[in-house]
Design a protein around this nucleic acid. Structure first.
Length: 424
RNA sequence: GGGAUCGUAGCUCAGUCGGUUAGAGCGCCUGACUGUGGCUCAGGAGGUCGUGGGUUCGAGUCCCAUCGGUCCCCCCA
């Protein structure tokens, strides 16, 4: 069939069949964030384009070619291409630093990037995010990583299916020396680097470390450790000690330099062994101690994580993780004959007011068709209303599993169903 | 942005060498049962074969273009 309209490329509808899954992972995420002392923040879906240009970096792929930019008069907006910058903006705008102590904010948000879609990558995707502001101590890094791993465990993803990769990329004080060292290494091996890496050697030399094409070349690249300043070294060592204390397993990944400009010190990602194809990063994050100040706020250490919701769902499916049963209604009201239809509607309304989930036919269908609907609805009970029930003020309650029937006064239906629900 | 691959019913798919009116399973609707679902049986609806053009006596089938889906590179969640 030729469709006149379809969803934009790389953007998906979530249909009633799968939305219970979304609700399930969302509520697990909210539950964990609440347990760890986070409050929810919701920011607009648009921000000034300049916010992302400044924070994510003008030379990043995200800003230079993937942002959805909207213009209205003099204003240039962008659909948010990631979750952190808007939260930082709001943190500054509302002076949240003044509320005292570290601020922990979580969110669930769509984000938009104009890339070609593939498995685990979409033009509109969704992200679970958590950010901590005002905590410079590695305790914050450790707690954040612990929360992330606990979240995945709670979803039934075994630890063996995931790998937490951890690295540090230093700070503005010590990174330049390391960057120079990597650049020198790259220049010494210039001929062996791919075209892409050759060109980024000037602008962003660290990126050659995570180029898949050049892994053979960069295997011998210098590690950052000898270049780290005292603060960065201590931070990273303390963090690793805390992770051991917490029993959070990880692997050191010297190549893990992230694509967004704002990261400092800790960087990490969680990759899945299966289920995600080549886009196997389930989540990514790190510390961004300079970003709040760079965006006009007070100097504020900060860190955060972004978890891909679609990717999480793909992994859950691939691992056959336990998933919630779709919600079922309690009862289906069946009207035999025209006189019963308004009564059926009225009874359904009363049941719903009493907290009973129920449904009924709205098309004037035959009794047989209504019974079919009752069966398909998954309801345990069909409430049958015909002339004799109307005369008696009752409904015939049919248990669709046991096939038993009994008469219940119409005024007692809700109480009866509630009582059944509380039985084993 | 580059590349691979696939588009036939709501869904999953057959469709021979180019040859009559394009099929199956599932799902949906109706009936067998004037007021009773699931199973069974019988019947029915639903397709301009993604779209446009070309070759041919004849195209779902061959060619070209185009639009989508999926996957890969790049990059990232």
């Amino acid at each position: 069939m030729e469709l006149r309209y379809r969803a934009p490329e790389g953007m998906n509808d979530v249909l009633p069949e799968s939305s219970p899954l979304w609700q399930y992972v969302e509520s697990r995420w909210r539950e964990h964030c609440h347990r760890y002392g986070y409050g929810e923040i919701r920011t607009p879906i648009l921000e000034s384009a300049a916010l992302f240009e400044r924070s994510v970096g003008e030379t990043s792929d995200i800003v230079s070619k993937e942002m959805y930019v909207l213009e209205r008069g003099e204003e240039r907006y962008a659909l948010k291409p990631e979750g952190t910058a808007p939260v930082v903006r709001a943190y500054i705008e509302h002076s949240l630093h003044a509320s005292g102590g570290a601020q922990k904010l979580y969110y669930i948000t769509p984000f938009f990037r104009g890339e070609r879609p593939q498995k685990g990558r979409y033009r509109q995707a969704h992200q679970f995010g958590a950010e901590i502001f005002g905590a410079a101590h590695p305790l914050a890094d450790a707690e954040l990583l612990a929360m992330v791993t606990a979240f995945f465990t709670a979803l039934g993803i075994p630890e063996s299916a995931l790998e937490l990769r951890l690295n540090t990329i230093g700070c503005p004080e010590c990174r330049p020396a390391y960057r120079d060292a990597v650049r020198q290494f790259g220049q010494a091996n210039f001929e062996r680097l791919c075209n892409n890496c050759q060109s980024r050697l000037e602008r962003n030399p660290l990126r050659i470390l995570d180029c898949k094409e050049c892994v053979a070349v960069t295997a011998d690249a210098p590690p950052i450790d000898p270049y780290l300043c005292e603060g960065c070294r201590t931070h990273f060592e303390t963090l690793q000690g805390l992770l051991k204390t917490l029993g959070v397993g990880y692997v050191r990944d010297h190549r893990l330099v992230r694509g967004l400009d704002y990261y400092t010190r800790t960087t990490f990602e969680v990759v899945a062994e299966q289920g995600l194809g080549s886009q196997n990063a389930l989540c990514g994050g790190g510390r961004y101690d300079g970003l709040v100040e760079a965006l006009g706020g007070p100097p504020t250490p900060a860190l955060g994580v972004g978890i891909g919701v679609e990717r999480t769902l793909l992994v859950l499916h691939a691992l056959n993780a336990p998933l919630p049963q779709p919600p079922r209604i309690d009862a289906f009201v069946v009207a035999f004959g025209e006189a019963a239809r308004p009564v059926a509607l009225q009874i359904a309304q009363q049941l719903r007011a009493a907290g009973v989930a129920c449904d009924l036919d709205l098309e004037g269908r035959s009794p047989k068709a209504q019974m079919r609907m009752a069966n398909r609805s998954g309801a345990r009970y069909a409430l049958l209303l015909g002339d004799s029930e109307l005369a008696a003020g009752t409904a015939t309650v049919k248990d669709l599993v046991s096939h038993e029937q009994l008469a219940v006064p119409q005024t007692e239906l809700a109480a009866w169903i509630h009582a059944q629900r509380n039985r084993p």
